[in-house]
C-alpha cells in the first residue's frame, strides 16, 4: 500500500512536470491541469509522505526530556488524536489561551519534550531541501480528523471573543493597496486572474477552504499549514510580517473554523 502510494506520487510528479510547460504557454489551462493533477494524485498526494514522517515524529522519544508527544492534549484529552484538528482552535485552561493546532503542538513540544520554543519554531515552515518537523506533525494530526466535521462552535467566552476579533481583522482595510481579507473573499463566484476565490463569510465557502488544510501546494512544492497560509495572505496584502503563532492568526482561524463548522474534513488537500 505504501509502495503503491509512493508510485502514484512519483507518476503524479511526472504528470505535473509535463503539464508545467504547457501551463506556461496556455495560462487558461492552469485550472484544468490542476484538476487533472488532483485526480492523478487522489491516492498519492506528496503530502502523504510527510504524514508518515509526522507519525514517526509523534511517537519518537525526542528532546532534552527524551519523551514522545503521545501524551499531548490537543483538546480531547492526552493522546487523543482522532478528530482533534477539527475542533481547533479552542480555549485551553492550562495556558488560559485560545490555541490552534500549531500553538498547541509547540506547547506540547516545549512542556513534554523540553525543547525551547525558539528551537522548535526555528524551522516552522520548510524551505527547499530543509523539511519542517512542524509541517510533518501537523499533516499527521490533520489527517486524523479526516471524515469528521469541523466543530468550532466557539461557545466558551474566550473562543467567542477570539472569533469576533478574527472577524474584525477579516474586514480591516489597510496598506498601500487598501486590502482586507474581505476584498477578495467576501463575495460569491469571483476569481483573481484564473484562481477561483471562495466567499469565506459563508459556511460553504469557509468549509471548502478550511477542510483541505494542511494542504500540498503545487506552486510551492511543499505542504503549507494554516498559519503559513494566513501569514502569506498578509504578505499578499503588502502588510508587515506577523509572528508565527500570533494571536491575530489564531483569531482568523477561529473565525474561519467557526464559519466552516459542520464541513467534513478532507486533508491533506492539493492546492495551486
Amino acid at each position: 500500500m505504501m509502495f503503491q502510494r509512493l508510485l502514484v506520487t512519483l507518476v503524479g510528479g511526472a504528470v505535473l512536470a509535463a503539464s508545467a510547460g504547457s501551463a506556461l504557454a496556455q495560462d487558461s489551462k492552469v485550472a484544468d491541469e490542476l484538476a487533472k493533477y488532483r485526480d492523478a494524485l487522489a491516492d498519492g498526494n506528496p503530502a502523504d509522505l510527510l504524514e508518515v514522517k509526522g507519525e514517526g515524529l509523534w511517537s519518537e522519544k525526542r528532546g532534552p526530556k527524551n519523551a514522545s508527544l503521545e501524551q499531548c492534549d490537543l483538546g480531547l484529552g492526552p493522546g487523543k488524536l482522532e478528530g482533534a484538528y477539527a475542533q481547533l482552535p479552542k480555549y485551553f485552561k492550562d495556558t488560559n489561551k485560545v490555541m490552534d493546532v500549531e500553538s498547541r503542538l509547540v506547547h506540547c513540544m516545549v512542556t513534554l519534550q523540553g525543547f525551547t520554543q525558539a528551537d522548535v519554531t526555528k524551522q516552522w515552515y520548510s524551505k527547499p531541501g530543509k523539511e519542517s518537523d512542524i509541517e510533518a506533525l501537523v499533516t499527521f494530526i490533520g489527517a486524523k480528523s479526516n471524515g469528521m466535521p469541523i466543530n468550532v462552535p466557539a461557545t466558551h467566552p474566550e473562543e467567542a471573543k477570539m472569533a469576533r476579533m478574527g472577524e474584525y481583522i477579516f474586514y480591516r482595510r489597510s496598506g498601500p493597496q487598501d486590502f482586507s481579507c474581505s476584498i477578495c473573499h467576501g463575495q460569491e463566484g469571483k476569481r483573481i486572474r484564473l484562481q477561483d476565490l471562495g466567499n469565506l463569510t459563508t459556511k460553504e465557502g469557509a468549509g471548502f477552504a478550511m477542510k483541505t488544510w494542511p494542504s500540498y501546494r503545487v506552486s510551492q512544492g511543499a505542504v503549507w499549514t494554516m498559519q503559513r497560509r494566513l501569514i502569506d495572505c498578509m504578505r499578499q496584502a503588502r502588510w508587515p510580517e506577523p509572528n508565527y503563532l500570533a494571536d491575530s492568526i489564531v483569531a482568523l482561524e477561529t473565525y474561519l473554523q467557526k464559519t466552516a463548522t459542520g464541513t467534513v474534513m478532507d486533508t491533506p488537500g492539493i492546492e495551486r
Binding site: 471573543k161 469576533r164 476579533m165 474584525y168 480591516r172 483569531a251
Partner: peptide, 25 residues
C-alpha cells in the same frame, strides 16, 4: 466587525507583528 471587542482586536492585531519589522513597514 468585532462588535464590542473591536478595540481589543485592534490592539491584538497591532501586537501580532514581528519586532524586526522596520517602523516604516
Amino acid at each position: 466587525p468585532g462588535g464590542k471587542f473591536a478595540k481589543d482586536a485592534e490592539q491584538m492585531f497591532r501586537a501580532s507583528f514581528k519586532a524586526e519589522n522596520p517602523k516604516y513597514w
